[in-house]
């Protein structure tokens, strides 16, 4: 199976509560928390589309869309 390719991360800023779980456990350090304590994508080029951030988000605020 071909490796999935990242289209984009979709972060719902209304739902994100800034727990930092996605950013902390990302194996590639792709995500960060911004000054408003919301998750943001900092290094999309490093994303391996493992979707761990998506499945661990307690607020269903983050989707990893692949091609």
């Amino acid at each position: 199976m071909a490796k999935p390719k990242l289209k984009q991360h979709v972060i719902n800023r209304e739902w994100c509560k800034g727990c930092g779980i996605c950013a902390h456990f990302c194996p590639k350090d792709v995500l960060e928390m911004d000054e408003k304590d919301k998750a943001v994508v900092k290094r999309p080029e490093d994303c391996i589309c493992c979707k761990l951030c998506e499945i661990r988000c307690p607020d269903l605020a983050l989707d990893v869309e692949t091609e």
Binding site: K17, G18, C19, I21, I55, R56, C57, P58, D59, L60
Partner: peptide, 10 residues
């Protein structure tokens, strides 16, 4: 924020 119950839902 960070409550694990949301991860169970997910």
């Amino acid at each position: 924020p960070g409550c694990g119950h949301g991860i169970v839902l997910n």
